[in-house]
Design a binder for these strands. Sequence first.
DNA 1: CCATCTTTGTGCACGCGTTCACAAAGACAT
DNA 2: ATGTCTTTGTGAACGCGTGCACAAAGATGG
Lengths: 254, 254
Amino acid sequence: MATGRTHRPATRSRGIPEATVARLPLYLRALTALSERSVPTVSSEELAAAAGVNSAKLRKDFSYLGSYGTRGVGYDVEYLVYQISRELGLTQDWPVVIVGIGNLGAALANYGGFASRGFRVAALIDADPAMAGKPVAGIPVQHADELEKIIEDNGVSIGVIATPAGAAQPVCDRLVAAGVTSILNFAPTVLTVPDGVDVRKVDLSIELQILAFHEQRKAGEERAAEGTGPTAATRGKESAKQGPDGDVPAVMPA
Amino acid sequence: MATGRTHRPATRSRGIPEATVARLPLYLRALTALSERSVPTVSSEELAAAAGVNSAKLRKDFSYLGSYGTRGVGYDVEYLVYQISRELGLTQDWPVVIVGIGNLGAALANYGGFASRGFRVAALIDADPAMAGKPVAGIPVQHADELEKIIEDNGVSIGVIATPAGAAQPVCDRLVAAGVTSILNFAPTVLTVPDGVDVRKVDLSIELQILAFHEQRKAGEERAAEGTGPTAATRGKESAKQGPDGDVPAVMPA
DNA sequence: CCATCTTTGTGCACGCGTTCACAAAGACAT
DNA sequence: ATGTCTTTGTGAACGCGTGCACAAAGATGG
């Protein structure tokens, strides 16, 4: 019953591993920087350092795209920029709608990284009638009633959800029904979508919680092996004068 | 030469796999929702569905924390909330500073998900003198000159960078020098940090590019096997009338 | 107290991703 | 033309993460 895939199909696209696809934008950014500095060629070692990855991994990643390097020399920067852009589909124009123009939605609308890579903000949509017509990032906000029409008229296939958690699933359903097949979700909710629709999630709170986990572990280890370095973790522990159990009103059965 | 780890140490904390740690916040969110609805117990199957994961995976994840379930019954919701919170270090107070109060920084400051889980915005910091004193989300913005003092006074060990790309590395260096050991980076740059400092990256542009890749693949497959469903991808292709090569001025050697 | 039924916890196998290490390929100098 | 030197591309090994499938554990009813 409604066993819609909640996560990416990960069907191993053509032969390019998902992990590699996730790194291509990283390489592309590093290459673009080199291109702007008019650097003609770059070795796997240099580029890997710039992208923050292992050079062997980078070479293997590129090998999935084809043999675009020259042995003894390296990779032609401009050519590689083009090849990766094409592989990622950035040589075409992707109209995008952003739904939910609160603080985050506005930030996204103003984010320069979108337009720079083939993405075009086709419309900003919000459920609040008071927002309608108000320009954000130079684009007038449209009411949610227009959602279906906007998507059809602009041929939008990528939607960004920046609504409160409660509104996310209904908005998602409407987007999908109107023809959107890729969704970037900023709302802290698990979205359920039919097969064939990709969902990627960006969750600020989760990232912080992961950091807290490692931070706690570091603090614990430091306390165990005293005097590693009186930096900040210890002070942090001081000011947050609160035992590991704190004041959480948890029911502890057994 | 400055071979600082750019990525997470991933030293396999105590025995809890990194992949499991990344899912714990997901489980915690689902459990919190159940708790608010006063649901006393939940089975791995139900909870897995709510969190959008496989039930076997969930059980294995929990097995790393200990045997907190009761066979034939399931898991006690309140107890599990407490255990996961403790494991993630959320039972203590984590003061956080946000550097760079532009659109994104303001959105983060207003984000409710922070305060709800032990995170407390200790300060907002911006390099623009005009911003100083101006309240954002009820907190007055402080000038970047105060950065070191703020971090020391509040025992901050987690910093959020929401500056433009160019400012990110210098800000990062100052944060680390002042004692911050965990950084959440929203700037589109690879940060270089010394060992022992964790960096997590959230990159809006990269997420969109990954979506574009899959979107392009879907469009290609659909074109190959005609008439799968006249939803939107085809329309998207129509309006974006532009060949796969587009107008990119790339130099094509060889 | 015993039988049955539900649900956990986990051993095992498989596949993906990462890394090493090296042969092949080409540039460059002589 | 030949040798040397640099750097790519990749075969192979390894380790982690995932999912299956089932035995053990406990609740529940008679």
